Simulated scan of single mutants.
Amino acid sequence: MTTRYAALLRGINVGGHKKVPMAQLREVLGELGHGDIATYLQSGNAVFSSDSDDEQALATALERAIERRFGFGVDCLVRGGPYLKAVADACPFPAASLEAKQLHVTYFSEPVAPERLAPIDAAAFLPEEFRLGDRALYLYAPDGLGRSKLAEALAKPRLFKGITATTRNWNTVVKLVELTRD
């Protein structure tokens, strides 16, 4: 059975570092045998179809292919359309009434125990808020991610040591759901 997936690449095409042209990313995915390939924006979002049901194997294969093609490593997460829809549907914030720049989802490579976030004094960052979901963290930042003190605190490497994490704004979250519908 063929499944629609999104590949979420971490930290590419930011400030001139780790440049991965989207046309070449589509080529790499095609060389891996995937079909129905498309990219969204320049920030490392690709969708494709595969007969595999192993997200981790798909991500590992893509990471290796990117390193071979471009000469540098890039962390990748691969998530199926149903998962992406479930994450969007489970949003604990009123997404429909917020600007896309105010709401973000950080996708994780594995579940995150709430204890990892214990060092964060959530009340100190209000009105900014976060909630954990299924291998995801929802962040409400009323002034946007660039001005968010909570996002800065959540970005501390020690909080998510050993876990791959990559963040997308709400517009991208919704678009990836749309692009991965069967």
Rank of each mutant, 00 (worst) to 15 (best):
A90G: 11
M22H: 07
L154S: 02
G81T: 01
V105A: 09
A6S: 04
A95G: 08
G44K: 04
N13I: 04
D121M: 09
A90M: 12
A141H: 02
S97I: 10
I37A: 00
Y138S: 04
K19G: 11
P94T: 08
P119G: 07
L84S: 06
V74T: 05
A88V: 03
R64Q: 14
G71L: 10
P21E: 05
M22K: 04
T166Y: 07
R158S: 15
A57T: 10
T172W: 00
R79W: 00
A122F: 10
I120R: 08
D51E: 12
R135H: 14
L77M: 05
F160Q: 15
A96D: 15
T180A: 00
V87K: 03
S43A: 12
P82I: 08
L159M: 11
K18S: 13
D51C: 10
L41Y: 09
E115A: 14
V47Q: 00
A155I: 09
Y140D: 12
L139Y: 10
I163A: 12
A86Q: 10
I66W: 01
L62C: 05
L154E: 05
E178M: 02
K18C: 04
S109P: 04
R64T: 12
E55M: 09
L176C: 02
G44C: 06
Q102L: 09
D89G: 07
A61W: 10
R4P: 02
T164F: 09
S148F: 08
L58E: 06
E129T: 11
A7Y: 00
A118W: 08
L132H: 05
P157F: 11
E63V: 07
G80A: 15
L9I: 03
E31T: 09
F130K: 04
L77K: 02
V112E: 02
D53C: 08
T164A: 13
P94Q: 09
T180G: 00
D121A: 15
P127T: 09
T164N: 12
F93R: 03
E115R: 10
T167S: 13
L29I: 01
L179Q: 01
A122Q: 15
G80W: 01
Y138N: 02
I163R: 15
A61H: 05
G15M: 07
L58Q: 06
A88F: 04
A124N: 12
F70S: 10
S50E: 02
L29F: 01
Y5Q: 06
A7W: 00
